[in-house]
């Protein structure tokens, strides 16, 4: 029973959504459940946040090596959560000064904004920027793998890179008219509109088929591993 009911819920919910897609009166249900999901995901933060605290509190109390970092995480988490939920240091909205809670939680100048601006944002941007190094090392690795697939990948990447920067026209602009089509920027546009389009098209069709098949298997209960064992 503990497994049958969820299976039935998934099946009914899924097929209702499929049928609703064809009925003008119910076609907007898709948008409604997306909002519901957002609410549900926000409620589920309690589980995630609780787990985060639990993991790091346990590390701290067990004094596992590096437990000091767990203390830092807990302190950062609790401070950010309290000043954010409490709107600490946030002025009311100028339009509604008599409502103390009406200000924006991320108002400029508030402690929450400060932590976002000077801690969150730089960290986020720096991690993202590390990709520049990883792109280089990945290209280097592909370069060493001497099979035809890797060569195709790297050669295409190189041509596109040339075509999208000033280096392309500078290096290949002198090509005579007969092989004009091989100039880096022309080749780039050809590669993008022909090969890239063809490959992506087939991949997208495959993804759509895969999505449909996985969804159907879940709705029919063929695939049910996500529901757990049915035990407590």
């Amino acid at each position: 029973m503990k497994r049958q009911i969820p299976l039935l819920i998934a099946m009914i919910a899924g097929f209702v959504m499929i049928v609703a897609y064809f009925i003008p009166y119910t076609v907007s249900w898709g948008d409604t459940v997306i909002v519901w999901f957002d609410v549900l995901a926000a409620i589920a933060f309690v589980l995630g946040g609780g787990n985060l605290l639990k993991v790091h509190l346990k590390k701290t109390s067990d004094q596992v090596p590096g437990w000091g970092y767990s203390v830092i995480t807990i302190v950062a988490f609790v401070i950010m959560l309290v000043i954010g939920l409490g709107k600490i240091g946030v002025n009311p909205a100028a339009k509604y000064p008599e409502f103390a809670w009406s200000g924006k939680f991320s108002e400029m100048g508030s402690p929450f904004w400060w932590l976002y601006e000077y801690v969150f944002k730089p960290l986020q941007a720096t991690i993202f920027s590390m990709l520049a190094f990883y792109v280089a090392s990945a290209a280097f690795r592909a370069f060493r793998a001497k099979n035809i697939e890797a060569i195709l990948l790297l050669a295409t990447a190189f041509i596109i890179l040339l075509g999208r920067t000033a280096a392309g026209p500078a290096l290949t602009g002198w090509f005579p008219d007969a092989i004009e089509g091989l100039e880096a920027d022309k080749l780039t546009s050809y590669l993008m509109t022909v090969f890239n389009t063809a490959g992506n098209r087939a991949i997208m069709i495959g993804i759509a088929l895969g999505t449909a098949s996985v969804s159907l298997k879940i709705l029919l209960g063929v695939e049910r591993s996500y529901l757990g064992s049915g035990e407590e």
Binding site: G48, G49, S70, I72, A76, M80, L81, F112, L123, I127
Partner: peptide, 14 residues
Amino acid sequence: ESIFIGISAAYWMV
């Protein structure tokens, strides 16, 4: 990393 995890988890919750 520790600061980032704490701050960002709380940020998205807020």
